[in-house]
Amino acid sequence: MQMRMIIGLISMLWMSCASAGSAPGDEQVYHTQDDYLQGVFQGAIPHPGTIWPDSALRGQLKDILGRKPGLRFRYWGADGKTAWILDQIGKDRPITAGVVINQGKIEDIRVLVFRESRGWEVKYDFFTRQFSELWLDSRQELSGSIDNITGATLSVNAMKRMARAALLLHEYSNQNTQTLANAR
C-alpha cells in the first residue's frame, strides 16, 4: 500500500513534468514586457519616455514603495494612457507587474513575473480586477479597498504599492492631461 502510494506520487510528478511543456530553466514569466505592451497599445508601442524624479517626487515614491525609488522610471504613453513596468518585493522576492493608467485611473494591472513562495492568487484576474478604475486620493492612497489574501498579505501589499506608484508617476508623465493641482 505504502509503496504503491509512493510510486503513484512519482508517476504524478513525472506526468506533471511531461505536461509542463517548457524546458526547465525558463523563468515563471506570465507575460513578457513586449507582449504586454503590444496588448496595451494594440501593436503600436509608443517610443518610451523617462521620468527622472526630483527630490520631492522621490520622497513621495519612497513613502509609497517603502524603499528608495530607482534613478528613473521608463514608461510608454499615448492618448492619455501610460504603461509602467515595476518591481516590488513581497515577502522576500520581487514581483514584476505591468500597470496601465488611463486618464488618471487604473485600467489594468497584471503580474508579469512572480517569484514568491506564497500568494499565487495575485497572479490571477479574480484578484487584480479589484484595482480596476481606482485612482489616487489626496492622501495618495487607492480610492477603493483591496481585499486581503490570508497568507499573502505581503504580496498583496506589494501589488498595492506598485499601483499607487504608477498612479503618481502618471501625473508626471507627458500623458497627464490635468495639472498636478487638480489631478486628484
Binding site: P24, G25, D26, E27, Q28, D92, R93, R115, S117
Partner: peptide, 12 residues
C-alpha cells in the same frame, strides 16, 4: 534563509 538556484529551483 532562502536561496534561488535558478528561476525554477529554490531552497527554503
Amino acid at each position: 534563509v532562502n536561496h534561488e538556484f535558478n528561476d525554477r529551483v529554490r531552497f527554503f
